[in-house]
Design a protein around this nucleic acid. Structure first.
Length: 778
DNA sequence: CAGTGAGCGAGCTTCCGCTTGACTT
């Protein structure tokens, strides 16, 4: 029988630690928090000094009862939860829930899972730090008060089932404000002038030191170039260094996995979880860039072994982000000699990323040589400059290059300057091959992707490693934010070229604004943000979390009572909730678009009971029933034009008949479509549905019919509802509205009606087993 | 692949942060 019971938070950790301790120790896990504020109601007794009502979380009942049993058998209980505010609270809740005896309980902490660290911790036990626990209670109670008082305000003033909170509401605000900046952005254009120059040692490209905004000015520069002789006015070569990035934290791992592997933050976390459980990496929810001495040692041994002595540079990193609690190490491989693992593709790729990043962090700086050639032309006001970069010693670059999550791909392309320049001499005469002036455009700020939103939240100290991914899911689930794909638009730009003494002018086109997986606010997200910002500016302040964190720190230091802090916050906050409930208008996001050209009635866009809509007229003012129309896919209250709004009332457009079937043009849930009888044909992107003629509709209809005919492999005259069709992933059976798979062993074209019925029978009776996919959104 | 846009009222929704499996769709 074990005399010592050690309780940690994570089961994988428990297994590792049990290996380090003798047979006198049994190590179990609490699976995180075991108690929380009661799920129903506020569970905070406001009248009674904010006394919290805790209960064992339903899914932890079993964990608690098992731990209770083990406690009875043990002489000493070691509470070894994480060394941070939440970890301290978990220990205290365990102490309470398990009815522990103070004399037989020890609190220990360690922030790396190594044998020496744990043995050392066992030698230095302490008591539960009640002040730190109180800081957590303040955090928990504040979040409940904010969430459970604000959300009901939204139910009354905006829409049922909405939610608000210290973290999520600010996350949505970031996206809403960014969208506003983009809408208000006015793009300007300028000319980038680049010359290709000939030297005795070879050609190189150099850029003119000014970017004229006017095409005539750009032209005069080219004209001056045409009349000029050129020479190398200056040549500078400077040594430079590049440093590796720090080891991964949760947030930087999410960013790099998003950029380099295209993973969503949820996918990154679940892959990392599997690597952690398999013992391949350390804990994946951390805000620390710190590596244990053992890890630094073995990383450097591996670097020396593989790359040689001069590539090693043991480095300790300091955490920069605000509010970091550093209960764990950085995310790193557990064994540096394992360069690759054999597993699922995702796991292999993420492991390799983690291995490279950690190794690189312990490698030598890269040594570079930056060269600038300055080219002077006799009739020019400014110089041309060519910048080149040569890697003299690659160092960590051998393994890893960090990406930039905020960056706009186009920017990166344009700023690339790792080219090699020819070895020219100062004073050397040059001639131009061509000089080009290309029209460029200033760009609006880019929309957030999941990973860049996480980065921003972390910078503001909002949210924790364990909540970044869930927060992003929540704001999408609530319908505040959606991931959109934008097609982009064609844009024309001017190109002037000087060649052989003459200047030509041409125009070219490029696609701009093409986007994928970018987060955009929905109408409801915008309305809720505006409502909350108007009435609860304190909580919507980007620095609100940082401010209350300071107060939590004071509580943790014993300088302040937690109930006192909550009281000070709650008084005005609650008053504000009451006032808002009583005095504020319903928020509908109403926006006046103008007046109807014929009737002179007011036209507004607003949120209705069933979603965003357009209303013409108002019963109150003009005594007649108003007209209504719902907004369609990809339209929103904030940016719909009067013209588009009026078009909605012209829908559906009846175009006439094809083969005696009515032809309708409309904009539906999946976008604009033509409907002929029962058949829907979507209108290709870029075509204006208001401009579709009967002829065009007929064309689209015929094409669709042909496509449908090509899909058909087989049909049965006796059962018209059953067809064998060719789909994107191969043949399948369509029966009524349902589709059924055809096993690979069967040839689709040879199926009889009986075969089909049998397959249908089999697949509809037996529940689908085998592949268990992670649950998708309902 | 729409149009709906009234009102009554029961009973429900909701927060953040710590951890993993379990539903049989």
């Amino acid at each position: 029988m074990a005399r010592n019971l050690v309780i940690v938070e994570s089961p994988a950790k428990a297994k590792t630690i049990e290996g380090y301790l003798g047979k006198d120790f049994v190590v179990k896990s609490s699976f995180g928090h075991v108690r929380d504020l009661a799920k129903k109601g506020l569970a905070i007794d406001i009248e009674n000094n904010f006394s919290p009502q805790y209960e064992v979380t339903p899914d932890k009942k079993q964990v608690v009862s098992e731990l209770k049993k083990l406690v009875k058998e043990a002489e000493t209980v070691w509470l070894a939860t994480d060394e941070d505010r939440e970890g301290e609270a978990i220990s205290w809740h365990l102490y309470e829930a398990l009815n522990l005896d103070k004399k037989e309980t020890r609190r220990i902490t360690f922030n790396e899972i190594t044998k020496p660290a744990i043995l050392k911790a066992i030698e230095r036990p302490r008591d539960i730090n009640k002040e730190l626990v109180d800081a957590q209670q303040a955090r928990r109670v504040l979040d409940r008060l904010v969430g459970f008082e604000l959300s009901p305000v939204l139910w009354k003033k905006v829409k049922p089932s909405l939610s608000a909170g210290r973290v999520q509401s600010v996350a949505v605000r970031l996206i809403v404000e960014r969208e506003k900046e983009i809408q208000q952005f006015e793009s300007g254009s300028f000319y980038r002038i680049q010359g290709i120059f000939k030297s005795t040692k070879g050609d190189f490209t150099a850029e003119y030191d000014a970017q004229p905004t006017d095409v005539n000015n750009a032209k005069s520069v080219l004209e001056a170039c045409g009349k000029s002789a050129f020479n190398v006015a200056d040549l500078q070569t400077k040594p430079a260094q590049r440093k590796p990035a720090a080891p991964f934290t949760t947030s930087t791992l999410q960013q790099e996995a998003s950029l380099k592997l295209g993973f969503s933050v949820t996918r990154t976390m679940s892959v990392a979880q599997r690597l952690y459980e398999a013992g391949k990496i350390t804990y994946m929810r951390t805000d620390s860039v710190n590596l244990s001495q053992t890890a630094i040692g073995s990383a450097n041994k591996e670097i020396v072994r593989v790359f040689g002595e001069n590539y090693a540079n043991p480095t300790t990193y300091k955490t920069k982000s605000a509010g970091a609690q550093e209960a764990h190490e950085a995310i790193r491989p557990t064994d540096f000699s394992v360069h690759h693992i054999s597993s699922e593709r995702d796991e292999e790729k993420l492991y390799e990323l983690i291995w490279k990043r950690t190794m690189a962090s312990q490698m030598a700086h890269a040594k570079l040589e930056r060269t600038t050639i300055t080219v002077a032309g006799e009739h020019l006001e400014k110089h041309f400059k060519a910048k080149g970069e040569v890697v003299k010693f690659d160092g960590f670059l051998k393994l890893y290059m960090e990406s930039n999550v905020d960056g706009n791909e186009e920017d990166e392309k344009e700023s690339a300057s790792d080219k090699l320049l020819p070895a020219v001499q100062v004073g050397e005469l040059l001639s131009y091959k061509t000089v080009k002036a290309t029209q460029r455009f200033s760009r609006p700020p880019s929309r957030f992707v999941e990973a860049s939103l996480v980065k921003k939240l972390e910078e503001l100290g909002i949210g924790r490693p364990s909540t970044y991914a869930p927060t992003i899911s929540t704001i999408q689930k609530r319908g505040y934010v959606e991931k959109l794909e934008r097609e982009g638009a064609l844009r024309e730009y001017a190109v002037l070229e000087l060649k052989n003494g003459s200047i030509s002018q041409d125009s070219a086109t490029e696609t701009t604004g093409k986007e994928k997986n970018k987060l955009s606010p929905t109408d409801i997200g915008t309305i809720v943000t505006e409502f909350l910002s108007e009435h609860f500016s304190g909580i919507m302040d980007y620095h609100f979390t940082a401010k209350v964190e300071q107060e939590f720190d004071e509580i943790a230091k014993g300088l302040r009572e937690w109930t006192d802090m909550i009281h000070t916050f709650y008084q005005p906050f609650h008053q504000n909730v009451e006032n808002t409930l009583e005095h504020s208008e319903r928020a509908t996001g109403e926006r006046e678009l103008g007046v109807h050209p014929d009737s002179g009635k007011k036209i507004i866009a607003r949120m209705g009971r069933f979603g965003p809509m357009i209303q013409i007229g108002d019963e109150q003012t003009d005594g007649e029933k108003p007209l209504f129309a719902s907004l369609r896919k990809e339209q929103s209250i904030s940016n719909i034009s009067l013209e588009q709004a009026l078009d909605l009332f012209k829908l559906p457009r009846m175009l006439g008949e094809i083969d005696e079937q009515a032809v309708k043009v409309n904009n539906g849930r999946f976008g604009p479509y033509v409907q002929v009888g029962k058949l829907f044909v979507s209108i290709p992107k870029g075509e204006d549905l208001m401009a579709i003629t009967l002829e065009r509709a007929t064309e689209l209809y015929r094409a669709k019919l042909e496509e449908e005919a090509n899909k058909l492999i087989k049909s049965f005259p006796e059962r018209e509802d059953i067809q064998v069709l060719n789909g994107r992933w191969g043949a399948y059976i369509k029966a009524g509205k349902n589709n059924y798979k055809i096993p690979k062993t069967q040839e689709a074209s040879e199926l009889t009606l009986e075969d089909c019925l049998e397959l249908i029978e089999k697949q509809s009776s037996a529940p689908q087993k085998g592949k268990r996919k992670p649950a998708k959104r309902a």
